[in-house]
Amino acid sequence: MTSPAALHSTDSDRMLAPSELRYLVLAAQREGNRALMRLLAPLELTPSQAEILLVLHSFGPLSLRSLGEMIVCEAGSPSRIVDMLVTRQLVHRRTSAADRRAVQLELTEAGASLIPSLKDIEAGLEAHAASVLTDQEQALVGAALRKYLQGTDSEGVFERRFGADQPR
């Protein structure tokens, strides 16, 4: 593991090549997604489906619009992914008691039964990150990426999902 002193004395002193930051972010996302897909394969879920199940578990029931405002996996409406989860009987659509024209999405018993496995997968990925980066390094990377996302649609998604007023 790289020590924080080593990171500060060598890596941070070197200027990035043109486009290197963009490709570093892309490569990290790609590697993380590949690892997640391997871990989700036994559950027959995609990363997008898993994210929707976890968001519905933490914040549901939600309207399709509200769900779309809280997920990173899909820009815009996640209706196609939700349709697949409904077909697989992992998510249920029900008429809202407050507004009969509105539909609320919630986990079915089968969907809820996957949550412990999904949380174990997330914990394993977080443990891997902790084995590579110190808490301070994770905080620095997170702060830099949040700064990079300022003014974008993704900034709002992260604030709604991970903001200071959200449960940890």
Rank of each mutant, 00 (worst) to 15 (best):
L90H: 03
G156H: 06
A5K: 08
L85Q: 01
L114D: 07
A139M: 02
Q166L: 01
F158M: 12
Q166H: 00
L39P: 03
L67W: 13
D135F: 04
R80I: 11
S48Q: 11
E51N: 01
V86S: 03
L21E: 08
A129C: 14
A102G: 01
A110S: 15
L90C: 02
S19T: 14
H128F: 10
R146W: 08
I81S: 09
I121H: 10
P116K: 08
I71F: 12
E69S: 15
L67T: 12
A75G: 15
L64G: 12
G163A: 07
V86N: 03
P18D: 13
E51F: 03
Q138M: 12
I71A: 11
S117F: 09
K119H: 09
S48G: 14
R100L: 12
A27N: 08
L105S: 14
M37R: 15
I115V: 15
V25P: 00
D83N: 13
T87C: 00
G156R: 12
A17P: 01
I121T: 13
N33H: 05
A144F: 12
L105K: 14
D165V: 02
L36G: 06
V82Y: 07
S66C: 01
A6C: 00
L53A: 02
M1N: 06
G142M: 01
P167G: 09
L107G: 12
N33L: 09
V55T: 12
L107T: 14
L26D: 11
S79T: 11
L26Y: 05
E122Y: 09
L7T: 12
S117P: 00
E51G: 05
R80D: 12
Q104I: 09
A17I: 01
L54G: 01
H92F: 06
G111R: 13
A97V: 14
S9D: 10
R146K: 09
V157E: 05
R168C: 08
L21D: 08
A6N: 07
A75H: 12
E155P: 04
Q136W: 08
P78F: 05
L43R: 08
G68L: 05
M15Y: 10
Q104C: 07
A17E: 13
D120E: 14
V82S: 06
E159K: 07
S113F: 06
D165C: 00
V132M: 13
L105H: 13
T152N: 04
T2S: 04
A97C: 01
Y23G: 00
Q136I: 10
R65N: 09
S66T: 03
R22S: 03
S9I: 03
P47V: 07
D153F: 01
T46I: 02
A27V: 05
S77K: 11
S131F: 03
E126P: 00
D13W: 11
